[in-house]
């Protein structure tokens, strides 16, 4: 409870502006790996545009910080929580489960990862019956498979589950 109350819109605004300013500086440094100058021979170097674009980004974040300090932006006066506790729980669970989903895709393959993701997500957020959730979690990956691998012929990552699909392919292309 208390954490979400402490993160006010005001604090989030200045924190994000500072982070973006730091990112802009990092981008400027990274751009400078290539030539960022303009010379008569070859005009702009490979790093010229990225460098000045990130310099522009930096200037914009500085302006945002100045507006914040002078209390000219609506966010600089807003002491309400950035996110309320209940919504935070939903958002956090969603983000974490998505990250785990993509991690799992690399290892377990997309189809089995989706089964677990859907089963978890529906169980957590919906009040549907176990039967509905089981059927739904199994049918969605099957439809995904049919749509991508059969209709569109785009192979999706299968990770360690790949050998399981050999008989399916044999059946599909026989």
């Amino acid at each position: 409870m208390s954490i979400t109350n402490k993160i006010t819109v005001k604090r989030a605004e200045i924190a994000v502006a500072v982070i973006l300013a730091l990112c802009s500086i990092a981008l400027m440094i990274k751009s400078a790996e290539n030539r960022i100058t303009w010379n008569a021979e070859e005009n702009m170097g490979a790093g010229f545009l990225p460098f000045y674009l990130s310099l522009g980004m930096f200037i914009c974040t500085v302006l945002t910080i100045i507006k914040f300090v002078l209390k000219r932006s609506p966010q600089s006066k807003d002491d309400s929580p950035f996110i309320d506790a209940e919504a935070f729980k939903y958002i956090a669970v969603t983000i974490i489960s998505l990250v785990i989903l993509v991690l799992a895709i690399g290892y377990l393959g997309i189809y089995f990862s989706l089964i677990f993701f859907l089963a978890f997500y529906l169980r957590y957020f919906s009040s549907k019956s176990v039967l509905f959730i089981s059927v739904f979690s199994l049918i969605t990956p099957v439809l995904t498979f049919l749509f991508f691998e059969w209709l569109l012929k785009i192979p999706l990552p299968q990770g360690i589950s790949e050998p399981l699909f050999y008989p399916v392919y044999d059946f599909m292309y026989s």
Binding site: T94, L118, Y121, L122, S126, K128, F136, T140
Partner: peptide, 9 residues
């Protein structure tokens, strides 16, 4: 709650 995971997929 059902639409969201489908859209994530």
């Amino acid at each position: 709650a059902i639409l969201a995971p489908v859209i994530f997929v």
